[in-house]
């Protein structure tokens, strides 16, 4: 565990006004539009939003792994250093070493042709100039750390010989191999069974407590948010629409989209004959984005003011991209308690 060597006002990771665009057959589309977020050392920040809202793109942009996309504006600062548009060579010293990722699908995220031990040894040796034997010891230690039974024997196993949950544990082991300071978990449990999901989340939380690693948890499961997050960043259509502490967001959501998301969680006391609440419509396609508020097409409270572009405003100690709430009359109708 490393001592946090930073001033109090300088977060581990800061993303400011980030714009990302992708080249497609019909020109470029903007996947991120002015994304702001920060993560402090050791803190858990949940990034929530529907599929395609830009959560994963933000993670990939931070790592410089956008493929045929590119950062077209804004700034990414890691530990006080500007890493926006850094060369692949420079980013390689950051990837896996300072910032690690766990991806969504453990079934396809490991190389099927190499043993898991080989892949862990490789992950460690990318950033550590040690002998194969030392790296091997580290790999077995990591397998033990993530709760793989008989780690020395499982070292020789191929990914296809492991269950989905075990593979995700191996992914976590690989991500933690070099003691990163930030772990990005991109929907780490979406592809897993519900029972395994709880185990993997418990493991991540346990490892975070032990290593003090910062966690950017990308999810669309508000239950997971309630359980894990210190702060929450809500994405909609490539923008951050609301950010605040987990308690504030879950108890008193300000943005109509956040409220709609929370209302969409089925609850135990919901009558069985009642239809599941859902947000009507779909996220507008990237090339037909409304010029004003991007949520206007689905918002139940849309008004003429929504036609103008909305900016993130400080409201009641957090940031909201909506003109409606203001500090004077405080918060909108409080939400009922969310079932954890």
């Amino acid at each position: 565990m490393r001592a946090p060597a930073r001033s109090a006002d300088e977060p581990l990771l800061r993303v400011e006004d980030l714009h990302v665009e992708f080249r497609t057959g019909g020109g470029t589309v903007e996947a991120l539009n002015a994304v702001d977020l920060w993560i402090d050392a050791g803190e858990t920040v949940a990034v929530v939003g529907e599929s395609g809202s830009g959560k994963s793109v933000t993670a990939l942009a931070v790592l410089g792994l956008l493929g045929n996309g590119r950062v077209s504006g804004g700034r990414i600062t890691w530990d006080g250093k500007d890493i926006t548009g850094a060369s692949n060579r420079d980013m390689r010293t950051v990837r896996g070493n300072d910032i690690s990722v766990i991806f969504q699908d453990p079934m396809t995220s490991l190389d099927p042709l190499f043993t898991i031990g080989h892949q862990l040894v490789e992950a460690y040796r990318i950033h550590h100039d040690v002998s194969k034997r030392e790296a091997r010891e580290r790999a077995v230690e990591l397998l033990d750390l993530v709760g793989i039974p008989e780690p020395a024997a499982k070292f020789k196993a191929y990914p296809h010989q492991l269950s989905g949950g075990q593979r995700q544990r191996v992914m976590i082991a690989g991500a933690l191999a070099c003691d990163p300071r930030l772990l990005i978990a991109d929907e780490p449990t979406t592809a897993l069974d519900v029972t395994v999901e709880a185990q993997v989340l418990a493991l991540i939380r346990d490892l975070q407590e032990r290593t003090g690693v910062g966690l950017m948890l990308i999810t669309h499961d508000m239950g997971v948010v309630a359980e894990m997050a210190d702060r929450v960043v809500v994405f909609y259509a490539g923008q951050v629409v609301e950010t605040g502490t987990a308690d504030e967001i879950l108890d008193r959501p300000q943005h109509p989209y956040t409220r709609a998301l929370l209302e969409a969680i089925p609850r135990r006391d919901t009558p069985r004959d009642q239809e599941m609440p859902a947000i009507p419509g779909a996220v507008p396609a990237l090339d037909e984005m409304p010029t004003g508020c991007r949520f206007v097409t689905r918002c139940t409270e849309a008004a003429p003011e929504c036609e103008s572009a909305q900016t993130l405003r400080d409201v009641a100690g957090r940031q909201v991209r909506c003109w409606r709430p203001d500090e004077d009359h405080g918060v909108l109708a409080p939400m009922a308690e969310v079932a954890g």
Partner: peptide, 18 residues
């Protein structure tokens, strides 16, 4: 090269040669 496991290996800082 577009598969998930290649993205994993890149995310760990491996060189393009590897």
């Amino acid at each position: 090269l577009g598969s998930n496991f290649v993205r994993t290996i890149r995310s760990r800082g491996a060189s393009e040669r590897v």
